[in-house]
Design a binder for these strands. Structure first.
Length: 470
RNA sequence: GCCGCUAUCGUCUAGCCUGGUUUAGGACGCCGCCCUCUCAAGGCGGAGACCGUGGGUUCAAAUCCCACUAGCGGCACCA
């Protein structure tokens, strides 16, 4: 049975790199008819952020990455970890350390100054079992695991065999003096207890994997299979960070990205098919995803490509749904949409121009408000030309006589006027467009005019003729 | 500093395992043309990678081997 987990630490928001890890775990589980679980790694009390866990679940739900079992919360399992630490202590695979943070700090500084690798000097290792026992009742202490002085090997599904030498690895603290476990211990214990078959996580964990392998050995447990995903990078190739890019998934939601597009784009950062297919809906991703086809090198997060992909998804989306999903953005922009059918009509006219849901308000605002803002450049370039006023006056007269105010009829009448007066159609179309919408770019002219409606079109034309625009 | 990972167009990548079918393929972006009432969308085309460098092996190497270099990651009572 394939069982995987996404194990974030709740530090405020879900990082886009975390989302990618979650997605790959999810895809791997679904592809193999396995289970996708979530574990909250909240063992650092100094980094507790109120509400972070709730936010995390909320955003994961928005993405549609649903977990199959009740989430495991590490901070509620202190007694479990304590028990396993005791076991290690008893087996002599770990020892208590009474050194103060100050001493440790000093030692590290000295080692770095001497260009030695920073590593615990093993002072408390020399304590006898009885002394250690006795001292533990008087002084605060941490527990360290003993690193064996030998080569440690493991297989990474993505990278193949990885070797580290134990002598270079520190006697890692597994239990802090506040009674909380550190990542390494909690992670190994929980992965075992949750019967995790595959650990799929970011590359930053590669160098601590030997510690985990040793812990499995000490407990006598079968380790899971490991797969370390390449990192997501800033444009300067450093690890994707807040400083250089938007890294919170919620930022992308707020900017008007679709979760489908975000997931699709992110899936391609470190994974691909042989034919370099770009657009995948989630079921197709599930069907085609394998760890064997994951890459090894870090991938720069390209916001431009994501934007393109979002546009692709929006273009494919039925107007009905697009209107529904843009509604929050319209409301936020101050539009009260009472008439959903009218909204759909407006959106359909601009459909293939929309790249973000947040583009919608601006793109259709001249349909929704009465007092439109005239773009200064458009006015100067198009409306302030000789003869424009006469053309618009004539057009207003013609439009006012059209009984059946449809795009077809409006177009026929407009073209007829051009022909009779020996004008190029563009000499009419452009001024009318600006007069009616306030700008030079917009939907197909006659559809736009029809949708706007006769009254509004005439009143806008007359306003312009009367010189009432900016 | 030490340890580890990685290395194909600006970016994401295919191809590498199982050498020749590769004048190294696709996608984003960029440029041009077409369509056209504008902006998009769409269609067509183009520029863009001597496959990190240097050595081998071989009739033949992006593909196999070695060395080097560069970039990144890790080296906490953080995860």
């Amino acid at each position: 049975m394939i069982r995987v987990r996404f194990a974030p630490s709740p530090t405020g928001f879900l990082h886009i790199g975390g989302l990618r890890t979650a997605l790959y775990n999810y895809l791997f589980a679904r592809h193999n008819d396995g289970k996708f679980l979530i574990r909250i790694e909240d063992t650092d009390r100094t980094r507790m952020v109120p509400g972070a866990v709730e936010k995390l679940f909320e955003i994961l739900k928005w993405c549609g990455l649903n977990n199959d079992e009740e989430p495991v919360i590490q901070s509620k399992r202190l007694d479990v970890y304590k028990k396993y630490v005791e076991e290690l202590l008893e087996k002599d695979s770990a020892y208590r350390c009474f050194c103060t943070s100050e001493r440790l700090e000093e030692m590290r500084k000295l080692q770095i100054a001497k260009k030695q690798p920073p590593k615990y000097d093993g002072l408390c290792l020399k304590l006898s079992k009885d002394d250690s026992e006795k001292l533990s009742k008087e002084k605060p202490f941490t527990v360290r695991m003993k690193m064996p002085q030998e080569e440690i090997k493991f297989i990474d599904i993505i990278r193949g065999e990885i070797k580290f030498h134990g002598s270079l690895i520190d006697d890692q603290i597994i239990l802090k003096s506040d009674g909380y476990p550190t990542y390494h211990l909690a992670n190994v214990v929980d992965d075992h207890l949750m019967e995790i078959s595959h650990v799929i996580r970011g590359e930053e964990w590669l160098s601590s994997t030997p510690k985990h392998v040793i812990l499995y050995r000490y407990f006598g447990w079968m380790p899971p299979q490991f797969a370390h995903l390449p990192l997501l990078l800033n444009p300067d190739k450093s690890k994707l960070s807040k400083r250089q890019s938007d890294v919170a998934v919620e930022d992308y939601r707020e900017k008007g990205y679709l979760h489908e597009a975000l997931l699709n784009y992110i899936a391609l950062l470190g994974w691909s098919t042989e034919d370099s297919q770009q657009i995948f809906e989630i079921n197709e991703l599930i069907k085609k995803f394998t760890l064997e086809r994951c890459g090894k090198s870090g991938a720069i997060f390209d916001a431009q490509k994501l934007l393109w992909m979002n546009g692709e998804y929006i273009r494919k989306m039925p107007v009905e749904e697009l209107a529904r999903r843009s509604s929050p953005f319209l409301q936020k922009a101050g539009f009260d949409i009472k008439n959903f059918e009218f909204l759909k009509k407006c959106i359909s006219l601009e459909h293939d121009k929309i790249k973000l849901l947040s583009d919608v308000p601006h793109l259709i605002d001249f349909f929704l408000k009465n007092d439109i803002i005239y773009d200064e450049k458009a006015v100067n370039k198009v409306l302030k030309k000789d003869g424009v006023n006469k053309i618009l006056t004539d057009i207003a007269g013609i439009y006012s006589k059209i009984e059946n105010f449809t795009a077809k009829a409006i177009e026929n009448e407009t073209r007829k006027y051009a022909e009779v007066n020996l004008l190029k159609t563009s000499q009419i179309f452009h001024p009318v467009r600006v007069a009616v919408s306030g700008r030079t770019e917009g939907p197909s002219l006659f559809d736009m005019i029809e949708t706007l409606g006769k009254d509004r079109v005439l009143s806008r034309l007359r306003n312009v003729i009367g010189g009432k625009n900016g």
